[in-house]
Structure formats: structure tokens, C-alpha cells
Design a protein around this nucleic acid. Structure first.
Lengths: 225, 225
DNA sequence: GTCAGTCGATACTCAACAGTATCCGATACG
DNA sequence: CGTATCGGATACTGTTGAGTATCGACTGAC
């Protein structure tokens, strides 16, 4: 059962890992492994800076597997964007959900969670910025990335409205603008934190969000009128 | 896209433009032209995606000029970072300077200016993000980009403190954190605006800044209601 | 057990590009 | 003028990497 790897080629090592020895891995597993490897390698070296050989080798396969599964490098990138942007959306929503407190406290907690998530997923965040760049450069308005971002924005907006209603407190600006602000702040602070961690305290984002949200036109935290 | 030019090689066209025909352009002019072309081409195609031939051709020269002036592609990128990051710093400081009003109003104006600047300099902003990426990936703590960013942060912090003193109003958080916040917000909102302009109203940044700054612990101006 | 189809490995092609060596003409200086 | 130097053009090299053609082994169906 031990994965003896003395001098046998990569694809056999991979097969040992994924299933029993000499068994061909299921297609979905290969796909997954390649996508995960692509996320790692692209994040570290940049999409343009990484070759398909690099990606495939990291997954324990060869380029052939990539072409068989994704058709081209561009196809791999598109699949990756699809795959990982969904994960991002889920993470954001999860952070907003099932909180039960005043708006300001919720905002604080949300900020802390997003900051922590950004730290843990530094690599993925780098990849995210690169996908964003590609989407902006290719002014195709129907890219997967744009769609996903729009969905995230809509979901966050809805969550904001819901939270505001539940808390019975008005928001300081339209929910949709707050959603934009949240996303911008999350990305912007993550950037600053990556390049100069000492300038971005752990709780900064939470404090700012609490400040903004707690300053509603109809109901601040202390002056409920 | 050939202009009216018939068949004369590029370097002669360039010489015609910069000085009289057949006159060799001054070294500094060549350098400038190459840097400007690099900013344009890199912003549009990405640094990795653009070849030195592309850059040189855009400036009306050939690759030889690049190697003669910058030694390597990496050298060109470094010089570009040096050149353009200074410009960015100046723009930020200029936007903060010579304002004379309440803190909140100043914040509002500052936000508007930064937003407008981001719109006008979309290309440069894209390049900026790519330089940021490179700086983050190469964890060399002494890169020109990091240094420049640190200088900008320090300058903005100082400006914040000065403004706060002049206005006689306390800030809602340390000036240094406000500086971080300002930079993050500027970058983050610029990103959102590039990919989804309709989600980011012109005055959003100004309003948020005013909201934050107007909510000082010791002196909110009138407390918005 | 046999056979067809599939999937990934392997070995290529071909183009693009960073970098280099050399050349040539304009400028600067005697 | 004549000559040396300098800076950019031109032609070349080597390498890298995307994409392709083919091959062989595993799988699943009967």
C-alpha cells in the first residue's frame, strides 16, 4: 500500500496516489488534480509565466492530460476561473450568513473573517487579481469572470438588505453601493496587506465596516432616533 | 497601422518626428520615448505578453535601442516602475494639498479627484497593478516598488495629520491607518470600476471617505443624520 | 477473453522572443 | 576636414513553450 517511488515515472506515482497501483485514475480526479495544480502554479508563477509542463508536472501528469481535458491553455484558465470564482462567492456568502447581532457588530465580524480568509488564501487571491486583469483587458462583456463577479455582487447586495431588515436599522447608503464598497475594501486591503502587512492591522477592515454601517442616516449604534 | 508613410523604415520616421530628418535624436529623448511606449504597450498587453520588439516599434525604434538604454527587459521594467511610481505619488499628494474646508468636505473632494484620476489613467492603473503583482511575488523587500509605496504611505500619513490639525478635528483612527484605508479604497474601487462601472457611482469614494472622517471619536463635525 | 474506444504519455513541429554580435552612420572633437 | 566614439539598426542564435500526431495501455462491454 505504500507508494514506493524509486524511479517510476510520474504518472504511475500519481496513479498510486489517486487509486490503487496501475489503475487509471478516473477522469474527474485527473481534472480536479490538474485544476488544483493550475491554481497553485499559476498563483506562484503567474499565468503567463507558467508553462503547461509545469502545471501538469505539479499534478503528476504530462501536458497530454491537459490537452485531453481542457483543449488549450486558454481552456484551462477558463475552467479555473469558473471553478475558483464559485468558491470565492461561497466563501463571501458564508461569511455574511448566520450572524445574529447588531449591524455594526456583524460588520466587524465580517471584516475580520474576510481579512483572515485573505491571509489564508494569499495564493488564490493573487490568482484572482490576475483573472481580474484578464477580464478587464479582454473587454468581452460575457466572460465567466464578469458573470461570476456580478452574481457575487447581487448576492452580497441581497444579504445586506436582509441583514438591514432583520436588524431594523437603515443602511447609510443603498445596499448595492455597500456591496461594492465591501468588495473593493476587501480587495484593496488584501493588496496592501500583501505588500506591507505592518500597515494593515488585523481588525482594520472590521472597524471601518462597523464605522460605515453604524453611521446610518436613521439609526446609529448609540443614537437611535 | 501604417500612416501615410510609404516604405521608409521606422527609425527614419522617428527621426523626422523628433528632430530634422536624418538627425540622431538625443539620448534622453530616446529613453523617454521608449519608457512612454513601454507604459502604453505593457498596460495594453501585459508585461509578459508584450515583446521588446512591440515596445520598440511603438516608440519608432528597434530592439537595439532598448538594449542600449536599459540592458534587458527586466531593466526596462525597473526603470518604468521607478519613473511611473513617482508620477503616481505626485498625483496623490497634489490631490491632498491646498484644500481648505472641513475635514469631511476635503475627504469628499479628495475622493472625487482620485476617482477621476483613476478613470483617466486606466491604462496606467492596469500597469500599476501588474507592478504590484511582481513586487509581491518577488519577495525582495528592497524593490523600487515597495520603496515607492512606503514613501507614498508616509507622505499620505503626514498629510492626514496636518489636515487634521489644521481643521482642529480628531481623526477616527490613527493617521497611518487612514492612509492605508485611503490607498486600499482607491485601488479597490478603481478595480471595481474597471470591471463594472455601473456598480461604482462617481461620488461613492468621496461619500465613504467623508463618512469615515466625519465620524471622529472626539469631534464629528455635526454628525450626519 | 476479446475487442473497441478512450485517455494520457511521448516525441515531435513551429513560432516567438530574449539576448548577442556586428555593422554603419551620425556626432563630436582634434 | 579627418578620425574616434557612440548609439541604434540588423542579422543571427538558442531556448522555450504552445500545440499536434501518434502510440500504447487501461477500461468496460459483450
Amino acid at each position: 500500500m505504500r507508494a514506493v517511488s524509486t524511479s517510476r515515472p510520474d504518472q504511475q506515482r500519481q496513479q498510486d496516489q489517486l487509486q490503487d497501483r496501475r489503475r487509471r485514475p478516473a477522469r474527474d480526479d485527473v481534472r480536479r488534480a490538474l485544476l488544483d495544480a493550475a491554481a497553485r502554479v499559476f498563483a506562484r508563477q503567474g499565468i503567463d509565466g507558467a508553462s503547461l509542463d509545469d502545471v501538469a508536472a505539479d499534478a503528476g501528469f504530462t501536458k497530454g492530460a491537459v490537452y485531453s481535458n481542457f483543449g488549450s491553455k486558454e481552456g484551462l484558465v477558463a475552467a479555473l476561473a469558473e471553478d475558483r470564482t464559485s468558491a470565492y462567492l461561497d466563501l463571501g456568502l458564508e461569511a455574511v450568513d448566520d450572524l445574529d447581532d447588531t449591524l455594526a457588530v456583524r460588520a466587524q465580524v465580517l471584516g475580520d473573517r474576510l481579512t483572515a480568509a485573505g491571509d489564508e488564501q494569499r495564493d488564490w487571491h493573487l490568482l484572482f487579481f490576475e483573472l481580474w486583469q484578464r477580464a478587464v483587458r479582454s473587454d468581452d462583456p460575457d466572460g465567466a469572470f464578469r458573470d461570476r463577479r456580478a452574481a457575487l455582487h447581487a448576492a452580497v447586495t441581497a444579504a445586506m438588505e436582509e441583514q438591514s431588515t432583520k436588524a431594523g436599522a437603515a443602511l447609510p447608503m443603498p445596499a448595492s453601493e455597500l456591496a461594492t464598497l465591501l468588495m473593493a475594501l476587501s480587495n484593496g486591503l488584501a493588496m496592501e496587506r500583501m505588500i506591507a502587512p505592518e500597515d494593515v492591522p488585523d481588525d482594520l477592515m472590521g472597524r471601518v465596516l462597523a464605522l460605515v454601517v453604524g453611521h446610518g442616516p436613521a439609526a446609529g449604534p448609540t443614537d437611535a432616533q
